[in-house]
C-alpha cells in the first residue's frame, strides 16, 4: 500500500491544501487549513519513511504532527483571539483567485522543470514531490507578497518552512533526529516571535493592513 505513487498523490494534495491556505478568506479558516496542510505533510513524511525504511522520518513525522498540526495553529488562533476585531485578517489579497491559482500552477511547473536535472538519493519516482516541495517555497513567497493583512503573511512564512522541511526529508532521509529538533524549534520560535510582533503592531497601530503600515499610517 505504501509506495511511491502514494507519496506523489500526497504531494499533489499538499499543493491543493496550500492553495486553499493562500485563498482562504478569514484568519480562522487559514489557521484550520494550515493545520490540514500540515497533516498532509505529516502523511508525506510518514509514507516517505515507510518507503525508504528510515525510522528517523517516522520520528520527524511525529514531531511535525506535534509542532505544525497542533502547536502552530494553536498559537496563531490564540493570537487572533487576543487581537480581536482589529485583526482585519479578512482583507482581500492583491491578486484575484484566478490569478493566484494560475500563478501557483506556473510555479509548480517551473519547479518541476528545475528539478528534472537532479538525481535523488531516494528514487526518481518521487521527483514530482521534490518539485512540489520546492514550489512550496515559492507558494509561501506568493502568499507573503499578495496578502494585505500581515497576519495572513505569517501563513506564507509557515508554508515556506513546510516546503523546506519536505525538501530536506526527500534529499536527506537518514539525517539524525537532532537536525529535526533544531528545525522544529526554529519554526516554533519564529512563529511565536512573529505572532508577538503582529499583536504589538495591532495594539499600537490598530491596523494590520500592510499597505497602511508601509506608510506608517495607523
Amino acid at each position: 500500500m505504501f509506495s511511491y505513487p502514494l507519496v506523489n498523490v500526497l504531494g499533489a494534495c499538499l499543493i491543493i491544501t496550500s492553495m486553499m491556505v493562500v485563498l482562504a478568506r478569514t484568519g480562522r479558516a487559514s489557521a484550520i487549513l494550515y493545520s490540514l496542510q500540515s497533516l498532509v505533510l505529516v502523511g508525506v513524511l510518514a509514507s516517505l519513511g515507510a518507503v525508504t525504511g528510515s525510522t528517523e522520518l517516522f520520528t520527524w513525522s511525529a514531531t511535525a504532527f506535534a509542532t505544525k498540526v497542533v502547536l502552530v495553529p494553536a498559537i496563531l488562533l490564540f493570537t487572533l483571539k487576543k487581537i480581536g476585531d482589529d485583526a482585519q485578517a479578512d482583507l482581500p489579497p492583491k491578486l484575484n483567485p484566478m490569478k493566484s491559482v494560475a500563478l501557483v500552477a506556473v510555479e509548480v511547473f517551473v519547479c518541476f522543470v528545475a528539478v528534472s536535472g537532479i538525481d535523488l538519493p531516494t528514487a526518481a519516482a518521487v521527483k514530482p514531490t521534490l518539485a512540489v516541495s520546492l514550489a512550496h517555497f515559492f507558494i509561501g513567497l506568493t502568499c507573503i507578497v499578495i496578502q494585505r493583512s500581515i497576519f495572513k503573511q505569517i501563513f506564507g512564512y509557515c508554508l515556506m518552512e513546510n516546503g523546506s522541511h519536505v525538501t530536506l526529508a526527500l534529499l536527506a532521509p537518514q539525517a539524525p533526529e537532532l537536525v529535526e529538533i533544531g528545525v522544529a524549534t526554529d519554526a516554533i520560535f519564529a512563529v511565536i516571535i512573529l505572532a508577538v510582533l503582529v499583536w504589538r503592531m495591532a495594539h499600537y497601530a490598530h491596523t494590520l493592513d500592510a499597505d497602511d503600515l508601509c506608510e506608517l499610517k495607523g
Partner: peptide, 8 residues
Amino acid sequence: GDFRTYIV
C-alpha cells in the same frame, strides 16, 4: 516603497 515588491 512596498517591501513586497522588494521581496519579488
